[in-house]
Structures are given as C-alpha cells and as structure tokens.
Amino acid sequence: MSDVRDSLGRVGYDLLSRALTDCGREWFTGEVRVTGRPGGSFHLRDGLVVAVESPGAPGPEALLLRSGRIDGDQWAELVRESGGARWPEAGLVAHGYAGAAQLRVVCMLALQDAAFAIVAGRIDSCERVPGTEPVARVPVGEGPLRLLQDSVRRLAAVSSLPYPVRPDRERPLPAAELPQVRLGELQRELLDRADGRSTARDLAFRSGRGVYAVTVEVGRMLAAGLLECPDPAAPAPVRILADTHAVRHREPPPPPPPYGPPEPPGDPVILPRRTPGASGITEALTPQKAGASWKGFFRMRSGTAR
C-alpha cells in the first residue's frame, strides 16, 4: 500500500495516521480537524471514530434522501419539528420513515465515504478540538487504524482499475460515439450529468451517491469508452520580456602564456539591473433521483470495487 500513499501524499497520510493513533491510545473524545483539500473532521468517542464529515463527500442526509424513504418536503418538516436539528433521528423513526438499524447503516456508509474522500485528497495539518459533537454518529465506533486501512484499500482498488481516476481530478463527458452496451442505473445517471466540468466528487453530490462508488464507476466507464476526458489545456506560451537596461559586455581576456606572469584583471562586467515586474509575478509572497426501496438503496453499492 505504500505506493498508493506515496502517490497521494505520504507525509499527509502519516500525519493523519499518527494523530488518530494517538487519539485511540489516549481514549480521546472530541474532534480531529483535518485541513487540506477537501479536508474534514474525524469525531471520536473514547478513542473510536463515531463520525467523519467532509465537504468532499455527501453526508448521511443526502444518502437517506437518495434512498427514496423520505423526500425533501418531509425532511424539512422533520427538521422544523425537531427545532432545527440537522439529523432528526428520533423523528425519522417515530414517523416510520426509517428504522434505527437502517439509520445506523446510512451513518456508517457516510462515515466510510468521508474518510475515503479525506485520505484521497491533500492533508496539510491535523488539530485536536475536544468536546465537539458530530451531526450524526454511529453508536459503536470504528477503530482509527482500521478505518484508515479500509480507506487505503479503497484507494488501491481505484488505482488498480484500467483507467484510475481521482475524486477531484478528471472531468469526464459522454463519449462522442457510445458503444452499444446495456447500461446500469448509475451509468445512465453519470452519462446524463457528466459535462466535462464536473469531477467524480461533483457527480457524487449531484446524484446523491457515495463519492467512492462514483469514482470507481467513472473509472470503469472511461475504460469502457462510455466517458472520455477532454484533452488537457495547452501550456501557456512563455513571453520573454526585453530588459530596458543596457548591458556592457566585454570579451574575456586572452589566456596567459604558459608559465608567464598573469594578466591584470579587466574591468568588471556590469550585471543588468532587474526591472520590477519583468518576471511577470506581481503578487506578494506571504509567509438529488430517488430509489424505489431500501433494497434498491443497498443494491447501489454492489457495483463498487472492493
């Protein structure tokens, strides 16, 4: 797995691994905030991860709405009844929209997907913040190292595809000539939404799917010729700016004859003065389509790589 970590930023991964390992050993309760791209937060209770949140992955609300068990209007009404709670778990169960076990599954899927998004991105720093609470959490937490190892396995699965992609890198669009193949539901959704500007992560949010599942499917569809990536932009031409100061050149003095006395040094060469702005640098350097049932919701994970 080390080659996967190296390609994604071994320093950042090791930083996160060390921070979570320390939290587990010390039975830490609170939040580990990860800055980077996309970054996010690991919420722990007594050293176990009970929730992971990231702007790079859809949360449990998006996954629940995608299941079709509840629509947007019903969700808004539950939020009002609960006094503005972002995860009205009690209301969901009381109104029969979902059972407690089903909500645990949704929270676990969101936790694993957010951890994958954080590890697959760039990690700059980690900071402990004690005493914070997540929006939604699982009742029985995951071991930090086990969770990170699962994320690395997912990265390895993506890297092993014939056309490996990153959640925030490739921006596919439908192929000019689509092969005559039978499409699955997720494939049809991605063909409808791919526009050459959206990454796999963008498509995950727009479809209400997990970012890992969408990243894997984008890679498969690129390999199958269903999607294609636009050619990368041509590099910008480099314009050489003329210097306004004259430079006085002198021919080097002839070499001294063998064993003869050295020639006196000539006049020093005048170096050109740098014109402000000549380098071109002017900035200062400073230090959601719903499924039919829960069975359909669980089936949408069956196509992902393991």
Rank of each mutant, 00 (worst) to 15 (best):
L16S: 12
D202W: 03
Q149D: 15
G219S: 01
I240D: 07
T304P: 00
L178G: 08
A194F: 06
Q187P: 07
R169N: 04
R33N: 05
L147S: 07
V52A: 07
E142H: 08
A278G: 12
P162M: 05
A175K: 04
M1I: 10
I123A: 05
R206C: 00
P255S: 10
A175I: 03
T132H: 08
H95C: 08
A284D: 09
P237N: 02
A115M: 06
P265A: 15
R104D: 15
R206G: 05
F42W: 02
R66Q: 12
V216P: 00
R301D: 05
G143P: 10
A213H: 05
D71T: 01
A94W: 02
L65V: 09
K289H: 11
V214D: 04
G9M: 07
E31V: 06
H249T: 13
Q180G: 05
S2Y: 00
A242I: 01
S198C: 07
S17P: 00
Y259F: 14
A19M: 07
L148S: 11
A200W: 02
P167S: 08
R66C: 04
L44T: 10
D168C: 03
V140E: 15
E127D: 12
M1C: 07
V211H: 02
A194S: 15
P287G: 05
A62M: 09
L78S: 09
R248L: 13
M300E: 15
F205T: 12
A101I: 01
H43Q: 02
L148A: 11
I240Q: 11
E53D: 15
G39W: 06
E53N: 02
G12P: 12
A57G: 06
D202Q: 12
R37E: 15
L222M: 06
A120C: 09
R171F: 01
Q180N: 12
G99R: 14
V52S: 08
A100T: 14
L183S: 08
A101Q: 11
A90P: 00
G39E: 07
R171S: 06
